[in-house]
């Protein structure tokens, strides 16, 4: 119990260290370039303090509870003995990995829902759009994108196909969707690619990628273990654009007079 508390203090100290350059930039520009006092300085400093404490607790909690278990699980699920079942020693095909695909999908979805930076963007988008973009709608759309992306990324590691095939076809699809999507959503959709992968998703997904790349025959963990994050930041763009197109299409249909 004691070590959790000392670890917590370390986690908060590490967060302070991360925030230092940001605070320097903000207060430096405020003092020397803008030369204006910060409105509500006390409230803003309290806010910064809460963010620091919050991230410290958040990271330490993840370290103590979820990451060790998630990593262990990724190892166990990718273990050839588990995948082959009773028939040990046979050559595994890509369809033998059903549990791994399901785990990839589920962990991609659930970690994205808990991702604090996505929550921040969803709150902002809800405010700016005056409520027409729901925080849950956006978060679920992004989470589905990440889930599909990571499941496909796992398929890529198992089959050993080159990463850039997927990414470049993804780009083509994103650009095609951009032509038809409502203008209002485009910038937000592009943003949702970058915000999905931070504190919660990256460590768990990286463990899955490395576990697979080191157990699937013929894969090199250093070369094939990477790439899952790239999938997780490309697919939400598509799913958010698709979500916007779908809701626009439904609106148009319900507005159409019944003939």
């Amino acid at each position: 119990m004691i070590h959790i508390l000392t670890d917590l203090i370390y986690a908060i100290a590490a967060t302070v260290w991360d925030v230092l350059p940001i605070a320097l930039v903000i207060f430096g520009f405020q003092l020397f370039i803008l030369r204006k006092p910060i409105p509500n300085l006390k409230k803003i400093l309290t806010g910064f303090l809460l963010v620091l404490l919050g991230l410290g607790f958040f990271l330490e909690g993840l370290q103590a509870a979820l990451f060790p278990l998630g990593r262990l699980m990724a190892q166990q699920l990718t273990d050839p003995v588990f995948i082959a079942g009773d028939d040990v020693g046979r050559i595994l095909q890509w369809w033998d990995y059903q549990w791994v695909y399901l785990f990839a999908f589920a962990i991609g979805f659930s970690t994205t829902i808990a991702e604090p930076s996505l929550l921040a963007v969803a709150i902002k988008a809800n405010q700016v759009s005056a409520g027409s973009i729901g925080t849950w709608g956006l978060r679920i759309a992004v989470a589905i994108g990440v889930a599909i992306g990571i499941a496909l990324g796992v398929f890529r590691i198992i089959t050993g196909t080159p990463l850039y095939w997927y990414i470049i076809s993804g780009y083509v699809l994103v650009l095609a969707q951009t032509m038809f999507a409502p203008r209002m959503i485009i910038a937000l959709a592009y943003d949702s690619g970058g915000v999905t992968t931070s504190t919660v998703t990256v460590p768990l997904v990286a463990a899955l990628g490395l576990g697979l790349a080191s157990t699937v025959p013929g894969r090199n963990p250093l070369l094939d273990g990477f790439g899952l994050i790239a999938f997780a930041s490309l697919f939400p763009i598509m799913s958010v654009l698709a979500y916007a197109q779908l809701s626009e299409w439904r609106n148009r249909r319900s507005n159409k007079p019944i003939t």
Binding site: A64, A65, L66
Partner: peptide, 28 residues
């Protein structure tokens, strides 16, 4: 036990973060 404490920490952390977001990071 450790996992339960960890989950409690994550919940407290996320709550504080969202409060701080609206008080500090967004306004500045």
């Amino acid at each position: 036990g450790e996992i339960a404490v960890g989950i409690l920490f994550v919940v407290i952390g996320l709550t504080l973060f969202v409060q701080g977001l609206n008080m500090g990071l967004f306004p500045i």
